[in-house]
């Protein structure tokens, strides 16, 4: 299949998740939640959700436990900054996938 088959002559899409592509691919660090510290998980009830409120990409769920969709998380680190109990740590992608990075360079 070639892109001509889409029949668009300018960029066109329908509102939906992921229409701009997998924007998480740009990230160089990602957030990791320590569920043992995170308030909703610890209390096993909806609470806090400050990270959900502040995430500019709307990729954090307002659920118990809190989950982050890493396909679209851009790695800005705002969630880890606003978490009042320091439950979110930003992890460098290179540390996690050193072999991939060597291939890139």
């Amino acid at each position: 299949m070639r892109t001509r088959d889409c029949k668009h002559i300018c960029d066109e899409s329908s509102p939906g998740i992921g229409e701009a592509g997998k924007t998480g691919e740009w990230r160089n660090s990602f957030p990791m939640i320590d569920q043992e510290r995170c308030t909703p998980s610890r209390q096993n009830k909806p609470a806090c959700f400050l990270c959900w409120l502040y995430c500019p990409e709307a990729v954090i769920s307002k659920t118990v436990p809190v989950q982050i969709n890493l396909e679209y998380c851009k790695g800005c680190g705002i969630c880890s900054q606003v978490c009042p109990v320091q439950a979110i740590t930003m992890i460098n992608e290179e540390e996690l996938h050193p072999e991939e990075d060597t291939q890139k360079s």
Partner: peptide, 26 residues
Amino acid sequence: KNYNLVTLADPRVNTEGVLCHGYMEL
């Protein structure tokens, strides 16, 4: 509909499963 949003280097499959142009194809 969205028109002329961020269109990255590579083609992408849209929410309807259709392969759509990247910037270069447009």
